[in-house]
C-alpha cells in the first residue's frame, strides 16, 4: 500500500512542481507588470503546494528528501500529467492551458480534501484555497482574450485546439488510482468530468470560443511517459543540483 500511496502523492506533487516551474518562466517576462506579479505569485503557490506533498512523499519513502525528489529524478520518474509540462509559447496559450488544468485541479482538490488520509486531506484543503483564485485568474483572462479582438480570439482558439488532446488524461483511472479510490484515500477522476465539462462549456460560451472536438488522446504522464518538453524543463530546473551536488545557499 505504501508504495502505491507514495506514487499517488508524487503524481500530485509533480503536477504542482512542473506547472510552478513553467509559471516561474514568466517572471520578468509578463505582458504587464501586474501579470508578471500574478504569474510569479501563482508559481510560488504551486512550489509551496509541491513542497507539502514532497515532504509527505519523503516520509513515505523514508530515504529521499523533498529536494532529492524534485531535483534528482529523471523524466521517466516524473508522474505529472503532460498538460502541465507543455511550453508556455505565449500569454494566451499559457492562459488556455492554465484554465483547462485549473478547472480540473479545483475539482480534484475539492474531492481530495475528503480523503481518509489526514495528510492528503489537510494539504488538499490548504491548496484548494489557492487554486480557487488561480482558476478565477485564468478564467477571467480567457474570457477577455476570447471575447477580445479578432487577433486575441484567433490565438486562444488555436491554443485551445492544440492543448485539448492533453485534457482527457486528467480523468483517466489506472490501477493505482482505483486502489487509492477504493481505500477512500484518492479521488475518482472520472467522476470529475461532468462538473469539469460544465465549467468549460459555460466559460467557452462566455468567451465566445468553440469547444474543440475530442480526437487524439495524449496520455501516460502519470506513468512516466512525457512529451519532449519535460526533459528541457528538468535540464534547466535541475542543472545546479546535478552540476554541484548538495549545493546550498
Amino acid at each position: 500500500m505504501n508504495n502505491e500511496l507514495l506514487t499517488y502523492t508524487l503524481r500530485i506533487a509533480d503536477n504542482s512542481l512542473i506547472l510552478g516551474q513553467r509559471m516561474s518562466e514568466w517572471c520578468s517576462k509578463g505582458p504587464t507588470l501586474e501579470e508578471d506579479i500574478a504569474l510569479s505569485n501563482i508559481s510560488l503557490d504551486l512550489f509551496g503546494q509541491a513542497n507539502g506533498f514532497y515532504s509527505y512523499a519523503s516520509q513515505l519513502d523514508g530515504n529521499k528528501s523533498p529536494d532529492d525528489l524534485a531535483f534528482l529524478r529523471n523524466e521517466r520518474e516524473f508522474f505529472n500529467q503532460q498538460i502541465v509540462e507543455l511550453e508556455n509559447i505565449d500569454f494566451g496559450n499559457t492562459i488556455v492551458r492554465n484554465f483547462l488544468y485549473d478547472s480540473y485541479n479545483f475539482l480534484f482538490y475539492s474531492s481530495l480534501k475528503n480523503s481518509k488520509d489526514d495528510t492528503l486531506s489537510a494539504l488538499a484543503s490548504k491548496s484548494l484555497k489557492e487554486v480557487k483564485y488561480h482558476l478565477r485568474h485564468s478564467k477571467n483572462w480567457l474570457i477577455r482574450l476570447g471575447d477580445g479582438t479578432e487577433f486575441s480570439k484567433e490565438k486562444v482558439q488555436k491554443s485551445l485546439e492544440s492543448i485539448w488532446q492533453y485534457t482527457h488524461d486528467m480523468f483517466s483511472m489506472d490501477e493505482i488510482d482505483n486502489k487509492m479510490y477504493r481505500l477512500n484515500i484518492g479521488v475518482n477522476n472520472s467522476n470529475l468530468k461532468v462538473e469539469w465539462d460544465r465549467i468549460i462549456n459555460e466559460t467557452l460560451i462566455e468567451a465566445k470560443l468553440v469547444r474543440p472536438k475530442d480526437g487524439y488522446n495524449a496520455k501516460g504522464g502519470k506513468n512516466g511517459m512525457h512529451t519532449e518538453h519535460l526533459g528541457f524543463l528538468l535540464a534547466e530546473m535541475q542543472f545546479l543540483q546535478r552540476a554541484y551536488p548538495n549545493a546550498k545557499w
Binding site: L44, D45, G48, Q49, N51, E130
Partner: peptide, 8 residues
C-alpha cells in the same frame, strides 16, 4: 501553520 503554501 503556514499562511500561503509558498509564502517565503
Amino acid at each position: 501553520t503556514p499562511t500561503y503554501s509558498g509564502c517565503p
